[in-house]
């Protein structure tokens, strides 16, 4: 059952990474920008959840507030930071993005304190379910359920609705999509809004799991998410999902087998380097930058 326990851990990590990394993939696919500041969006999502939950006593309200507020922040990043810089080379908005991330980390530190914020009441983190001898934590379960619901929902949205199909068309060929009456600016807003909402949910769930939101909460997931989108073949949502799950599982098993000389965070990069040597185009490799 030990290996099943590890798989549960790996899959729940993978689901968290997927919710975080898909936002990056969407932005990369549409604008060819490495949206490093997505980590700040993730962190903001976590802060809103914990602060609103503590203020109102309701986790549900915390998540609702986060899903509403965080996308506004994501859209504002596009509108105020990226849009004016789009006329320059893609590394210009990327550097601006790194700058925003550093600024936001310090802002979180100053506004919400060095020590981080914990939930006043966090029953989920201490609730477990046993299935045979396999233990599921409630938050792990929530991560998996959220990811499944979200990605099934996204799949339905992008294949069954005109708006979703138009969105994919814009990612594929923005100018031609405009020729058919699709407003590419609105698509960009939608893109940032959805990516940010996903990051908010992931951030909130990680906050519950850690029972701690500190200023650096986004840092680790951010560079892992960057590794994931490269592994996933830059711009491919399907590749990102596969890479997220693979990384989650590799980390979960890797930690116990090679964890004595290589920590979990390094595994992501080892996997990245190994894959890039074997398959420079990533897992799916349909499209490269």
């Amino acid at each position: 059952m030990y290996y099943v326990d590890l798989a549960v851990t790996g899959i729940s990590f993978g689901c968290m990474y997927a919710m975080m990394a898909v936002g990056l993939t969407l932005v990369y696919g549409l604008l060819r920008i490495l949206h490093v500041a997505h980590a700040a969006v993730f962190a903001l999502g976590a802060y809103v959840v914990v602060l609103v939950a503590n203020a109102t006593g309701s986790l549900i309200l915390g998540f609702l507030a986060s899903i509403l507020i965080t996308p506004l922040f994501g859209v504002a990043i596009y509108r105020l930071l990226y849009q004016p810089l789009l006329k320059y080379r893609p590394d210009v908005p990327m550097i601006a993005s790194v700058g925003l991330l550093v600024l936001m980390q310090d802002a979180f530190r100053i506004v919400f304190g060095e020590q981080g914020v914990t939930f006043r009441s966090n029953p989920l983190a201490f609730t477990t379910f046993n299935l045979g001898s396999v233990t599921f934590n409630a938050v792990q379960l929530a991560l998996v359920i959220s990811a499944v619901v979200i990605f099934v929902g996204l799949h339905v949205f992008t294949t069954r609705t005109r708006m979703g199909i138009g969105w994919r068309a814009t990612v594929s060929r923005p100018q031609i999509a405009t020729s058919f009456g699709i407003d590419s600016i609105k698509v960009r807003y939608l893109n940032f809004a959805i990516g940010s909402a996903l990051a908010a949910i992931a951030g909130g769930l990680v906050a519950l799991l850690n029972n701690l939101v500190d200023p650096s909460i986004g840092a680790v997931v951010s560079y892992k998410a960057l590794a994931i989108i490269v592994l996933g073949g830059l711009g491919s949502v399907r590749g990102t999902l596969i890479a997220s799950l693979v990384l989650g599982l590799v980390e979960a098993y890797g930690t116990v087998f090679i964890g004595d000389w290589l920590d979990r965070d390094a595994i992501a990069f080892l996997a990245l380097i190994a894959l890039l040597m074997i398959r420079p185009q990533g897992f799916t490799g349909a499209r490269t930058a």
């Binding site: 005109r162 199909i165 068309a169 594929s172 060929r173 058919f180 699709i182």
Partner: peptide, 19 residues
């Protein structure tokens, strides 16, 4: 041609009629 290459034939037509 500049098709939306990762959309199906049907979906490309849907985009054609988007407006």
């Amino acid at each position: 041609r500049q098709l939306f290459s990762d959309l199906t034939v049907d979906e490309n037509l849907t985009v054609g009629g988007y407006a």
